[in-house]
Design a binder for these strands. Sequence first.
DNA 1: GTAAAATTTTAAGGTTAATTTAAGGTTTTC
DNA 2: GAAAACCTTAAATTAACCTTAAAATTTTAC
Lengths: 227, 227
Amino acid sequence: MNKKDTTILLVDDEPDILEIVGYNLTDEGYKVVTAENGLEAIKKAKKIKPQLIILDVMMPEMDGIEACEKIRKLPDLEDTVITFLTARGEDYSQVAGFDAGADDYITKPIRPKVLVSKVKALLRRFKKEEGNSEALKIGELIINRDEYKVIHNKKELILPRKEFELLSLLASKPGKVFKREDILHQVWGEEVIVGGRTIDVHIRKLREKIGDDSFKTIKGVGYKFVV
Amino acid sequence: MNKKDTTILLVDDEPDILEIVGYNLTDEGYKVVTAENGLEAIKKAKKIKPQLIILDVMMPEMDGIEACEKIRKLPDLEDTVITFLTARGEDYSQVAGFDAGADDYITKPIRPKVLVSKVKALLRRFKKEEGNSEALKIGELIINRDEYKVIHNKKELILPRKEFELLSLLASKPGKVFKREDILHQVWGEEVIVGGRTIDVHIRKLREKIGDDSFKTIKGVGYKFVV
DNA sequence: GTAAAATTTTAAGGTTAATTTAAGGTTTTC
DNA sequence: GAAAACCTTAAATTAACCTTAAAATTTTAC
Protein backbone atom coordinates (compact mmCIF):
# COMPACT_ATOMS: atom_id res chain seq x y z
CA MET A 1 0.00 0.00 0.00
CA ASN A 2 1.19 3.43 -0.91
CA LYS A 3 1.71 6.07 1.74
CA LYS A 4 -0.87 8.42 0.36
CA ASP A 5 -3.46 5.67 0.38
CA THR A 6 -2.91 5.37 4.08
CA THR A 7 -5.50 7.19 6.11
CA ILE A 8 -4.92 8.13 9.70
CA LEU A 9 -7.75 9.17 11.98
CA LEU A 10 -6.53 11.62 14.56
CA VAL A 11 -8.74 12.17 17.58
CA ASP A 12 -8.20 14.84 20.18
CA ASP A 13 -10.27 17.59 21.71
CA GLU A 14 -7.44 20.11 21.66
CA PRO A 15 -7.26 21.94 18.36
CA ASP A 16 -3.56 22.61 18.93
CA ILE A 17 -2.76 18.94 18.99
CA LEU A 18 -4.84 18.25 15.91
CA GLU A 19 -3.02 21.05 14.20
CA ILE A 20 0.52 20.06 15.01
CA VAL A 21 0.17 16.31 14.71
CA GLY A 22 -2.00 16.64 11.65
CA TYR A 23 0.53 18.87 10.03
CA ASN A 24 3.41 16.51 10.63
CA LEU A 25 1.59 13.47 9.35
CA THR A 26 0.21 15.24 6.31
CA ASP A 27 3.68 16.49 5.61
CA GLU A 28 4.88 12.89 5.64
CA GLY A 29 2.38 12.06 2.95
CA TYR A 30 -0.42 10.46 4.90
CA LYS A 31 -4.06 11.33 4.45
CA VAL A 32 -5.22 12.66 7.81
CA VAL A 33 -8.80 12.96 9.05
CA THR A 34 -9.55 14.41 12.44
CA ALA A 35 -12.26 14.11 15.06
CA GLU A 36 -12.76 15.93 18.34
CA ASN A 37 -14.33 13.33 20.54
CA GLY A 38 -15.02 9.63 20.81
CA LEU A 39 -18.46 9.68 19.22
CA GLU A 40 -17.26 11.57 16.22
CA ALA A 41 -14.26 9.28 16.02
CA ILE A 42 -16.40 6.15 15.79
CA LYS A 43 -18.59 7.67 13.13
CA LYS A 44 -15.66 8.68 11.02
CA ALA A 45 -13.77 5.46 11.60
CA LYS A 46 -16.71 3.52 10.17
CA LYS A 47 -16.86 5.72 7.17
CA ILE A 48 -13.24 6.07 6.16
CA LYS A 49 -11.75 2.86 7.52
CA PRO A 50 -8.39 4.29 8.48
CA GLN A 51 -5.33 2.09 8.78
CA LEU A 52 -4.32 3.82 11.99
CA ILE A 53 -6.21 5.67 14.70
CA ILE A 54 -4.46 7.98 17.10
CA LEU A 55 -6.72 8.48 20.05
CA ASP A 56 -6.45 10.86 22.95
CA VAL A 57 -7.41 9.26 26.24
CA MET A 58 -9.01 12.28 27.87
CA MET A 59 -11.87 13.69 25.86
CA PRO A 60 -15.40 14.97 26.41
CA GLU A 61 -18.45 13.09 25.11
CA MET A 62 -16.73 9.74 25.06
CA ASP A 63 -13.18 9.12 26.22
CA GLY A 64 -10.55 7.34 24.20
CA ILE A 65 -10.74 4.07 26.07
CA GLU A 66 -14.44 3.66 25.55
CA ALA A 67 -14.09 4.70 21.91
CA CYS A 68 -11.31 2.18 21.45
CA GLU A 69 -13.40 -0.66 22.83
CA LYS A 70 -16.25 0.24 20.53
CA ILE A 71 -14.04 0.53 17.48
CA ARG A 72 -12.41 -2.83 18.17
CA LYS A 73 -15.82 -4.45 17.94
CA LEU A 74 -16.51 -3.13 14.45
CA PRO A 75 -15.88 -5.95 12.00
CA ASP A 76 -14.47 -3.71 9.31
CA LEU A 77 -11.86 -2.28 11.62
CA GLU A 78 -10.41 -5.30 13.32
CA ASP A 79 -7.12 -4.86 11.49
CA THR A 80 -6.86 -1.17 12.24
CA VAL A 81 -3.98 -0.17 14.45
CA ILE A 82 -5.00 1.94 17.41
CA THR A 83 -2.60 3.97 19.47
CA PHE A 84 -3.29 6.19 22.45
CA LEU A 85 -2.07 9.62 23.27
CA THR A 86 -1.43 9.91 26.99
CA ALA A 87 0.20 12.42 29.24
CA ARG A 88 3.48 11.19 30.66
CA GLY A 89 3.03 9.32 33.89
CA GLU A 90 -0.65 8.60 33.36
CA ASP A 91 0.17 5.04 34.03
CA TYR A 92 -3.29 3.81 34.59
CA SER A 93 -4.56 4.87 31.26
CA GLN A 94 -1.76 3.01 29.51
CA VAL A 95 -2.76 -0.21 31.11
CA ALA A 96 -6.45 0.34 30.58
CA GLY A 97 -5.59 1.24 27.03
CA PHE A 98 -4.10 -2.16 26.29
CA ASP A 99 -7.11 -3.80 27.88
CA ALA A 100 -9.30 -1.84 25.56
CA GLY A 101 -7.48 -3.23 22.57
CA ALA A 102 -4.90 -0.58 21.78
CA ASP A 103 -1.67 -1.54 20.07
CA ASP A 104 0.62 1.13 21.39
CA TYR A 105 0.73 4.47 23.10
CA ILE A 106 2.45 7.77 22.52
CA THR A 107 3.18 10.08 25.43
CA LYS A 108 2.69 13.80 25.47
CA PRO A 109 4.32 16.17 25.09
CA ILE A 110 4.54 15.17 21.46
CA ARG A 111 7.85 15.30 19.65
CA PRO A 112 7.11 15.33 15.94
CA LYS A 113 10.08 13.19 14.93
CA VAL A 114 9.22 10.55 17.50
CA LEU A 115 5.61 10.61 16.50
CA VAL A 116 6.31 10.16 12.82
CA SER A 117 8.72 7.30 13.32
CA LYS A 118 6.34 5.57 15.66
CA VAL A 119 3.54 5.92 13.14
CA LYS A 120 5.75 4.45 10.45
CA ALA A 121 6.69 1.54 12.66
CA LEU A 122 3.09 0.82 13.53
CA LEU A 123 1.98 0.91 9.93
CA ARG A 124 4.82 -1.38 8.94
CA ARG A 125 3.67 -3.88 11.49
CA PHE A 126 0.13 -3.56 10.26
CA LYS A 127 1.15 -4.12 6.72
CA LYS A 128 2.96 -7.31 7.52
CA GLU A 129 -0.05 -8.81 9.21
CA GLU A 130 -2.15 -7.87 6.25
CA GLY A 131 -0.33 -10.34 4.02
CA ASN A 132 -1.22 -13.97 3.58
CA SER A 133 -2.01 -13.43 -0.02
CA GLU A 134 -1.13 -16.52 -1.98
CA ALA A 135 2.15 -16.52 -3.82
CA LEU A 136 1.83 -15.67 -7.46
CA LYS A 137 2.93 -18.42 -9.83
CA ILE A 138 3.62 -17.82 -13.50
CA GLY A 139 5.43 -20.57 -15.35
CA GLU A 140 8.86 -21.03 -13.85
CA LEU A 141 8.42 -17.97 -11.70
CA ILE A 142 6.97 -17.78 -8.22
CA ILE A 143 6.51 -14.41 -6.63
CA ASN A 144 6.02 -14.42 -2.91
CA ARG A 145 4.83 -11.02 -1.89
CA ASP A 146 4.66 -11.88 1.80
CA GLU A 147 8.29 -12.75 2.05
CA TYR A 148 9.43 -10.40 -0.66
CA LYS A 149 11.21 -13.06 -2.62
CA VAL A 150 11.13 -14.64 -6.02
CA ILE A 151 11.82 -18.20 -7.07
CA HIS A 152 12.96 -18.67 -10.63
CA ASN A 153 13.84 -22.09 -12.04
CA LYS A 154 13.82 -23.43 -8.49
CA LYS A 155 16.39 -20.92 -7.41
CA GLU A 156 15.63 -18.23 -4.91
CA LEU A 157 16.28 -14.65 -5.87
CA ILE A 158 16.27 -11.68 -3.58
CA LEU A 159 15.34 -8.67 -5.61
CA PRO A 160 15.71 -5.06 -4.48
CA ARG A 161 12.45 -3.26 -3.82
CA LYS A 162 11.94 -1.47 -7.09
CA GLU A 163 12.87 -4.49 -9.14
CA PHE A 164 10.55 -6.61 -7.10
CA GLU A 165 7.66 -4.22 -7.47
CA LEU A 166 8.23 -3.85 -11.17
CA LEU A 167 8.36 -7.58 -11.68
CA SER A 168 5.25 -8.05 -9.55
CA LEU A 169 3.37 -5.56 -11.62
CA LEU A 170 4.34 -6.94 -14.99
CA ALA A 171 3.88 -10.54 -13.92
CA SER A 172 0.48 -9.82 -12.40
CA LYS A 173 -0.98 -9.90 -15.89
CA PRO A 174 1.28 -11.85 -18.20
CA GLY A 175 0.91 -10.71 -21.77
CA LYS A 176 -0.60 -7.38 -20.89
CA VAL A 177 1.35 -4.34 -21.98
CA PHE A 178 1.93 -1.87 -19.20
CA LYS A 179 2.40 1.64 -20.41
CA ARG A 180 5.44 3.49 -19.16
CA GLU A 181 3.18 6.03 -17.56
CA ASP A 182 1.22 3.39 -15.70
CA ILE A 183 4.39 1.66 -14.53
CA LEU A 184 5.66 4.94 -13.16
CA HIS A 185 2.48 5.56 -11.24
CA GLN A 186 2.12 2.07 -9.89
CA VAL A 187 5.71 1.39 -8.95
CA TRP A 188 7.10 4.84 -8.29
CA GLY A 189 3.99 6.62 -7.03
CA GLU A 190 1.73 9.35 -8.23
CA GLU A 191 3.87 12.41 -7.79
CA VAL A 192 7.35 10.98 -7.93
CA ILE A 193 9.17 12.24 -10.95
CA VAL A 194 12.14 10.26 -12.18
CA GLY A 195 14.03 10.51 -15.39
CA GLY A 196 12.91 8.81 -18.55
CA ARG A 197 15.53 6.09 -18.48
CA THR A 198 14.91 4.82 -14.98
CA ILE A 199 12.39 2.21 -16.01
CA ASP A 200 14.72 0.91 -18.73
CA VAL A 201 17.51 0.37 -16.28
CA HIS A 202 15.31 -1.62 -13.96
CA ILE A 203 13.96 -3.68 -16.82
CA ARG A 204 17.52 -4.41 -17.78
CA LYS A 205 18.32 -5.66 -14.30
CA LEU A 206 15.31 -7.94 -14.45
CA ARG A 207 16.34 -9.21 -17.85
CA GLU A 208 19.76 -10.09 -16.45
CA LYS A 209 18.25 -11.96 -13.56
CA ILE A 210 15.10 -13.54 -14.94
CA GLY A 211 15.94 -13.88 -18.61
CA ASP A 212 15.95 -11.69 -21.65
CA ASP A 213 12.97 -13.27 -23.35
CA SER A 214 10.54 -12.77 -20.54
CA PHE A 215 10.33 -9.05 -21.01
CA LYS A 216 9.17 -7.68 -24.31
CA THR A 217 9.51 -4.07 -25.26
CA ILE A 218 6.61 -2.51 -27.12
CA LYS A 219 8.17 0.57 -28.58
CA GLY A 220 6.31 3.74 -27.90
CA VAL A 221 4.03 2.00 -25.44
CA GLY A 222 5.68 0.06 -22.66
CA TYR A 223 6.69 -3.42 -21.59
CA LYS A 224 5.08 -6.76 -21.10
CA PHE A 225 5.96 -9.96 -19.35
CA VAL A 226 5.52 -13.19 -21.27
CA VAL A 227 5.98 -16.85 -20.39
CA MET B 1 -11.39 6.60 -22.48
CA ASN B 2 -9.85 9.51 -24.29
CA LYS B 3 -8.93 12.64 -22.41
CA LYS B 4 -11.22 14.79 -24.46
CA ASP B 5 -14.13 12.53 -23.59
CA THR B 6 -13.55 13.21 -19.93
CA THR B 7 -15.85 15.83 -18.52
CA ILE B 8 -15.08 17.74 -15.37
CA LEU B 9 -17.70 19.78 -13.56
CA LEU B 10 -16.10 22.71 -11.81
CA VAL B 11 -18.16 24.47 -9.18
CA ASP B 12 -17.22 27.71 -7.46
CA ASP B 13 -18.87 31.04 -6.89
CA GLU B 14 -15.72 33.01 -7.61
CA PRO B 15 -15.33 33.72 -11.33
CA ASP B 16 -11.57 34.01 -10.87
CA ILE B 17 -11.28 30.44 -9.69
CA LEU B 18 -13.48 29.14 -12.48
CA GLU B 19 -11.31 31.03 -14.90
CA ILE B 20 -7.94 29.85 -13.74
CA VAL B 21 -8.81 26.27 -12.90
CA GLY B 22 -10.96 25.94 -15.99
CA TYR B 23 -8.17 27.23 -18.14
CA ASN B 24 -5.63 24.80 -16.78
CA LEU B 25 -7.87 21.79 -17.14
CA THR B 26 -9.03 22.73 -20.61
CA ASP B 27 -5.43 23.23 -21.56
CA GLU B 28 -4.74 19.67 -20.45
CA GLY B 29 -7.39 18.46 -22.83
CA TYR B 30 -10.34 17.90 -20.54
CA LYS B 31 -13.83 19.07 -21.30
CA VAL B 32 -14.78 21.48 -18.53
CA VAL B 33 -18.26 22.60 -17.51
CA THR B 34 -18.74 25.16 -14.75
CA ALA B 35 -21.42 26.02 -12.22
CA GLU B 36 -21.60 28.81 -9.68
CA ASN B 37 -23.50 27.24 -6.83
CA GLY B 38 -24.69 23.93 -5.48
CA LEU B 39 -28.12 23.97 -7.09
CA GLU B 40 -26.72 24.67 -10.50
CA ALA B 41 -24.07 22.01 -9.90
CA ILE B 42 -26.64 19.32 -9.21
CA LYS B 43 -28.66 20.27 -12.26
CA LYS B 44 -25.63 20.17 -14.53
CA ALA B 45 -24.23 17.03 -12.96
CA LYS B 46 -27.45 15.18 -13.78
CA LYS B 47 -27.37 16.46 -17.29
CA ILE B 48 -23.76 15.90 -18.30
CA LYS B 49 -22.69 13.08 -15.98
CA PRO B 50 -19.13 14.24 -15.45
CA GLN B 51 -16.40 11.82 -14.45
CA LEU B 52 -15.08 14.28 -11.88
CA ILE B 53 -16.64 17.08 -9.88
CA ILE B 54 -14.52 19.76 -8.23
CA LEU B 55 -16.66 21.44 -5.62
CA ASP B 56 -15.98 24.53 -3.59
CA VAL B 57 -17.10 24.16 0.00
CA MET B 58 -18.24 27.72 0.59
CA MET B 59 -20.90 28.88 -1.83
CA PRO B 60 -24.21 30.74 -1.78
CA GLU B 61 -27.52 28.99 -2.53
CA MET B 62 -26.26 25.59 -1.53
CA ASP B 63 -22.83 24.85 -0.14
CA GLY B 64 -20.52 22.18 -1.44
CA ILE B 65 -21.12 19.70 1.33
CA GLU B 66 -24.86 19.66 0.86
CA ALA B 67 -24.44 19.46 -2.87
CA CYS B 68 -22.05 16.58 -2.48
CA GLU B 69 -24.49 14.63 -0.34
CA LYS B 70 -27.24 15.17 -2.88
CA ILE B 71 -25.06 14.19 -5.80
CA ARG B 72 -23.89 11.04 -4.10
CA LYS B 73 -27.49 9.89 -3.88
CA LEU B 74 -28.09 10.15 -7.61
CA PRO B 75 -27.91 6.67 -9.06
CA ASP B 76 -26.25 7.77 -12.29
CA LEU B 77 -23.43 9.47 -10.51
CA GLU B 78 -22.33 6.97 -7.94
CA ASP B 79 -19.09 6.32 -9.75
CA THR B 80 -18.29 9.99 -10.16
CA VAL B 81 -15.24 11.18 -8.30
CA ILE B 82 -15.92 14.20 -6.12
CA THR B 83 -13.23 16.42 -4.70
CA PHE B 84 -13.56 19.52 -2.57
CA LEU B 85 -11.84 22.84 -2.77
CA THR B 86 -11.09 24.16 0.70
CA ALA B 87 -9.07 26.96 2.11
CA ARG B 88 -5.98 25.72 3.93
CA GLY B 89 -6.66 25.14 7.59
CA GLU B 90 -10.41 24.82 7.12
CA ASP B 91 -10.05 21.56 8.85
CA TYR B 92 -13.67 20.99 9.59
CA SER B 93 -14.71 21.19 6.02
CA GLN B 94 -12.19 18.56 5.04
CA VAL B 95 -13.61 16.17 7.54
CA ALA B 96 -17.20 16.98 6.79
CA GLY B 97 -16.29 16.52 3.17
CA PHE B 98 -15.38 12.90 3.68
CA ASP B 99 -18.60 12.39 5.61
CA ALA B 100 -20.53 13.80 2.71
CA GLY B 101 -18.98 11.28 0.37
CA ALA B 102 -16.09 13.16 -1.14
CA ASP B 103 -13.07 11.27 -2.40
CA ASP B 104 -10.39 13.86 -1.90
CA TYR B 105 -9.81 17.51 -1.30
CA ILE B 106 -7.66 20.20 -2.80
CA THR B 107 -6.54 23.14 -0.71
CA LYS B 108 -6.44 26.71 -1.82
CA PRO B 109 -4.46 28.58 -2.83
CA ILE B 110 -4.47 26.54 -5.99
CA ARG B 111 -1.22 25.67 -7.68
CA PRO B 112 -2.02 24.74 -11.25
CA LYS B 113 0.64 22.02 -11.49
CA VAL B 114 -0.55 20.36 -8.30
CA LEU B 115 -4.15 20.66 -9.34
CA VAL B 116 -3.59 19.04 -12.70
CA SER B 117 -1.59 16.15 -11.30
CA LYS B 118 -4.18 15.55 -8.62
CA VAL B 119 -6.95 15.53 -11.18
CA LYS B 120 -5.01 13.06 -13.28
CA ALA B 121 -4.44 10.81 -10.30
CA LEU B 122 -8.11 10.86 -9.33
CA LEU B 123 -9.27 10.06 -12.82
CA ARG B 124 -6.77 7.25 -13.07
CA ARG B 125 -8.22 5.73 -9.94
CA PHE B 126 -11.66 6.03 -11.45
CA LYS B 127 -10.57 4.56 -14.72
CA LYS B 128 -9.04 1.55 -13.08
CA GLU B 129 -12.43 0.48 -11.84
CA GLU B 130 -13.70 0.40 -15.40
CA GLY B 131 -11.93 -2.89 -16.07
CA ASN B 132 -10.22 -4.31 -19.08
CA SER B 133 -11.55 -3.98 -22.56
CA GLU B 134 -12.25 -7.12 -24.49
CA ALA B 135 -10.34 -7.91 -27.63
CA LEU B 136 -11.94 -6.72 -30.84
CA LYS B 137 -12.84 -9.43 -33.34
CA ILE B 138 -13.59 -8.80 -36.99
CA GLY B 139 -13.70 -11.81 -39.27
CA GLU B 140 -10.27 -13.39 -39.36
CA LEU B 141 -8.80 -10.53 -37.44
CA ILE B 142 -8.51 -10.19 -33.69
CA ILE B 143 -7.18 -6.97 -32.24
CA ASN B 144 -6.06 -7.16 -28.66
CA ARG B 145 -5.48 -3.70 -27.32
CA ASP B 146 -4.41 -4.90 -23.88
CA GLU B 147 -1.53 -6.92 -25.21
CA TYR B 148 -0.96 -4.72 -28.19
CA LYS B 149 -1.07 -7.56 -30.65
CA VAL B 150 -3.07 -8.67 -33.65
CA ILE B 151 -4.01 -12.16 -34.69
CA HIS B 152 -4.68 -12.66 -38.38
CA ASN B 153 -5.56 -16.06 -39.80
CA LYS B 154 -4.48 -17.61 -36.52
CA LYS B 155 -1.07 -16.06 -36.79
CA GLU B 156 0.18 -13.50 -34.34
CA LEU B 157 1.41 -10.21 -35.68
CA ILE B 158 3.29 -7.55 -33.79
CA LEU B 159 2.60 -4.24 -35.42
CA PRO B 160 4.48 -1.01 -34.77
CA ARG B 161 2.50 1.58 -32.91
CA LYS B 162 1.22 3.73 -35.72
CA GLU B 163 0.24 0.73 -37.77
CA PHE B 164 -1.53 -0.76 -34.79
CA GLU B 165 -3.43 2.42 -34.07
CA LEU B 166 -4.35 2.88 -37.69
CA LEU B 167 -5.62 -0.66 -37.99
CA SER B 168 -7.53 -0.32 -34.74
CA LEU B 169 -9.22 2.77 -35.99
CA LEU B 170 -10.23 1.43 -39.37
CA ALA B 171 -11.28 -1.94 -38.01
CA SER B 172 -13.34 -0.36 -35.25
CA LYS B 173 -16.06 0.29 -37.82
CA PRO B 174 -15.68 -2.07 -40.74
CA GLY B 175 -17.11 -0.58 -43.91
CA LYS B 176 -16.99 2.97 -42.68
CA VAL B 177 -14.86 5.37 -44.66
CA PHE B 178 -12.46 7.36 -42.53
CA LYS B 179 -11.44 10.65 -43.99
CA ARG B 180 -7.74 11.35 -44.22
CA GLU B 181 -8.20 14.31 -41.97
CA ASP B 182 -9.95 12.24 -39.32
CA ILE B 183 -7.31 9.55 -39.48
CA LEU B 184 -4.63 12.16 -38.93
CA HIS B 185 -6.40 13.54 -35.89
CA GLN B 186 -7.16 10.20 -34.30
CA VAL B 187 -3.89 8.41 -34.95
CA TRP B 188 -1.38 11.22 -35.15
CA GLY B 189 -2.97 13.69 -32.77
CA GLU B 190 -4.46 17.12 -33.01
CA GLU B 191 -1.44 19.27 -33.56
CA VAL B 192 0.98 16.90 -35.24
CA ILE B 193 1.62 17.84 -38.82
CA VAL B 194 3.02 15.23 -41.17
CA GLY B 195 3.38 15.17 -44.90
CA GLY B 196 0.58 14.13 -47.21
CA ARG B 197 1.98 10.71 -48.08
CA THR B 198 2.50 9.43 -44.57
CA ILE B 199 -0.88 7.78 -44.27
CA ASP B 200 -0.46 6.07 -47.63
CA VAL B 201 2.78 4.48 -46.56
CA HIS B 202 1.24 3.09 -43.42
CA ILE B 203 -1.75 1.77 -45.30
CA ARG B 204 0.64 0.04 -47.61
CA LYS B 205 2.40 -1.66 -44.71
CA LEU B 206 -0.93 -2.90 -43.44
CA ARG B 207 -1.86 -4.15 -46.90
CA GLU B 208 1.38 -6.13 -46.99
CA LYS B 209 0.70 -7.68 -43.63
CA ILE B 210 -3.05 -8.10 -43.48
CA GLY B 211 -3.93 -8.39 -47.15
CA ASP B 212 -4.50 -6.05 -50.03
CA ASP B 213 -8.24 -6.54 -50.21
CA SER B 214 -8.99 -5.51 -46.66
CA PHE B 215 -8.20 -1.88 -47.24
CA LYS B 216 -10.13 0.04 -49.85
CA THR B 217 -9.11 3.45 -51.06
CA ILE B 218 -11.88 5.96 -51.60
CA LYS B 219 -10.23 8.52 -53.78
CA GLY B 220 -10.52 12.06 -52.61
CA VAL B 221 -11.91 10.94 -49.26
CA GLY B 222 -10.00 8.33 -47.34
CA TYR B 223 -9.83 4.62 -46.56
CA LYS B 224 -12.05 1.88 -45.23
CA PHE B 225 -11.57 -1.56 -43.84
CA VAL B 226 -13.73 -4.36 -45.19
CA VAL B 227 -14.10 -8.05 -44.39
C1' DG C 1 26.52 8.72 14.71
C1' DT C 2 29.44 7.37 11.16
C1' DA C 3 31.12 4.36 7.72
C1' DA C 4 30.15 1.01 4.47
C1' DA C 5 27.21 -1.21 1.37
C1' DA C 6 23.45 -1.56 -1.44
C1' DT C 7 20.06 0.42 -4.15
C1' DT C 8 18.30 3.78 -7.11
C1' DT C 9 18.73 7.46 -10.36
C1' DT C 10 20.99 10.13 -13.75
C1' DA C 11 23.67 11.05 -17.70
C1' DA C 12 25.63 10.26 -22.07
C1' DG C 13 26.73 7.92 -26.10
C1' DG C 14 25.28 4.06 -28.96
C1' DT C 15 21.88 1.22 -31.41
C1' DT C 16 17.90 0.00 -33.54
C1' DA C 17 13.66 0.25 -35.58
C1' DA C 18 9.75 3.11 -36.51
C1' DT C 19 8.38 6.92 -38.98
C1' DT C 20 8.55 10.32 -42.38
C1' DT C 21 10.01 12.25 -46.57
C1' DA C 22 11.02 12.49 -51.27
C1' DA C 23 10.56 11.42 -55.91
C1' DG C 24 9.20 9.03 -59.84
C1' DG C 25 5.36 5.99 -61.32
C1' DT C 26 0.41 4.78 -61.75
C1' DT C 27 -4.36 5.23 -61.76
C1' DT C 28 -8.60 7.75 -61.78
C1' DT C 29 -11.39 11.69 -62.88
C1' DC C 30 -13.15 15.27 -65.55
C1' DG D 1 -4.92 14.13 -72.01
C1' DA D 2 -4.08 17.01 -68.13
C1' DA D 3 -4.63 17.28 -63.37
C1' DA D 4 -5.31 15.36 -59.10
C1' DA D 5 -4.90 11.83 -56.09
C1' DC D 6 -2.77 7.91 -54.77
C1' DC D 7 1.04 4.03 -54.97
C1' DT D 8 5.62 2.38 -54.33
C1' DT D 9 10.25 2.28 -53.00
C1' DA D 10 14.20 3.51 -50.87
C1' DA D 11 16.64 6.70 -48.33
C1' DA D 12 16.74 10.07 -44.54
C1' DT D 13 15.38 11.26 -40.25
C1' DT D 14 13.88 10.82 -35.79
C1' DA D 15 12.17 8.80 -31.65
C1' DA D 16 12.56 5.32 -28.55
C1' DC D 17 15.14 2.37 -26.30
C1' DC D 18 19.68 0.02 -24.65
C1' DT D 19 23.87 0.01 -22.17
C1' DT D 20 27.22 1.47 -19.07
C1' DA D 21 29.30 3.83 -15.58
C1' DA D 22 29.23 7.09 -12.26
C1' DA D 23 26.61 10.01 -8.98
C1' DA D 24 23.20 10.33 -5.53
C1' DT D 25 20.52 8.40 -2.25
C1' DT D 26 18.99 5.16 1.07
C1' DT D 27 19.74 1.40 4.02
C1' DT D 28 22.42 -1.36 6.90
C1' DA D 29 26.13 -2.40 9.97
C1' DC D 30 29.24 -1.17 13.31
